[in-house]
Write a protein that binds this DNA or RNA. Structure first.
Lengths: 212, 212
DNA sequence: CAGTTCCGGAACTACCTAGTATCGTTTCTC
DNA sequence: GAGAAACGATACTAGGTAGTTCCGGAACTG
């Protein structure tokens, strides 16, 4: 076990010595996520991560005791991306859902789902990782959908008895399927069609209500 | 390279010797699919497969030159399961879709999707495997949905302009997502709710049209 | 019966990678 | 300045696994 400071928080540097460079943490986590998305957990090697981060392996293991710990921590960090912070508010559910796919988000989603693909084989092997991945990767995605739909319900646009819990999974599920299984790109027209032909009708909004 | 017979087909046994037991092929493929579904490609070992099949590793390598070849071949074999052969025909689309989940199929689907999960990390690494998996695992699943929906459209139950191509992906996508990402079981009530709240409305069938 | 190929089993080789240790250097505290 | 800890780099250890080879025995051909 590494020489953990006895005090759990705000570890007062025991005594002299070069302090840890917090910038290395960020570089390593970023490199880990990149390699993870590109090659998947099993094929990702610690040497790759170290090289990509411009770090030595010792620097990695000084911070995380194992590859699994590094990945769990790195995946957990993603949740901080403030997807939920600035949700669109256009007045209609369709407007909100379409606005949700601004380019930045589309790239984010693609990266997120590449990560999910890289982790997929682990989801059935490492419970801790499965939880971390679920919470950090897919839950914010689903939650943003759910929030927009609940808001539409609260303002009377969507029937009160709509099964939002289920419908909020449609876009995440079908996007993941398209990216990971079908290996086809997710572009805006595709997402718009998904919204108009599946999501909105499932919420009781006639497909004909969409603009031409 | 193994001593392939010069004639590509119907290799006439060069001369004497014990003939290959075709039963071993089946046992090995079955074992490979089992282990693959349980542990995923990366963690599956050839020793595991050989042990499960009650075979020696030499028997495996006498037939397939590598682990990847065995898996590609095994996955390709699955397509032969005649999912499309005996589709239900109850007169209504909802009846057909619900009938499609007879217990046998539910188990099949779960196994199929466990396989997809086991292969997920490879889908971004081995193109040959990705193609084989797509064709053998998901396409029959999607095709059965599509067929039932096209039949409903042809008899006028569903509007002629319904986006069947897209809606046929709903159940496969959301089932895969639930099994692989959410790690929750797929039971009949869940699938029925999916059909009633998402699939049928997306095809223009009012959710209220469903039986209580 | 002789020769050949298969069989399950097991030992063996070759390689890859997680994790550790060490080196020379840098950056901090006292 | 002296000591301590972190840094990148590299060499090293330990374990696991793909793929090979050999064994005794079985099944086939001629």
């Amino acid at each position: 076990m590494p020489p953990e400071p006895p005090e759990p928080e705000a570890a007062p540097r025991a005594r002299g010595g070069r302090p840890r460079d917090p910038g290395r943490d960020a570089a390593i986590v970023a490199a880990a996520l990149e390699v993870l998305a590109e090659t998947g957990y099993e094929r990702m090697t610690m040497d790759q991560v170290a090289a990509r981060a411009g770090a030595g392996k010792a620097t990695l293991y000084r911070r995380w005791p194992s590859k699994a710990d590094l990945v769990v921590h790195a995946v957990g960090q993603i949740g901080d991306t403030p997807v939920l912070a600035d949700l669109p508010d256009t007045g209609t559910l369709r407007g909100d859902l379409v606005a949700l796919m601004r380019p930045q988000t589309a790239e984010d989603d693609e990266r997120l789902l590449a990560l999910t693909g890289g982790l997929a084989s682990l989801l059935s092997a490492e419970p801790a990782l499965a939880d971390a991945a679920g919470a950090a990767l897919v839950e914010p995605f689903v939650a943003s959908q759910r929030l927009l739909m609940e808001r539409a319900r609260d303002r009377g646009e969507v029937p009160a008895d709509a099964d939002i819990e289920t419908v909020a999974l449609v876009t995440p599920s079908m996007t993941a399927f398209r990216l990971i299984v079908q290996r086809q790109p997710v572009d805006v027209p595709h997402l718009v069609r998904l919204i108009d032909t599946v999501v909105l009708p499932a919420l009781g909004l006639a497909a004909s209500a969409r603009p031409a």
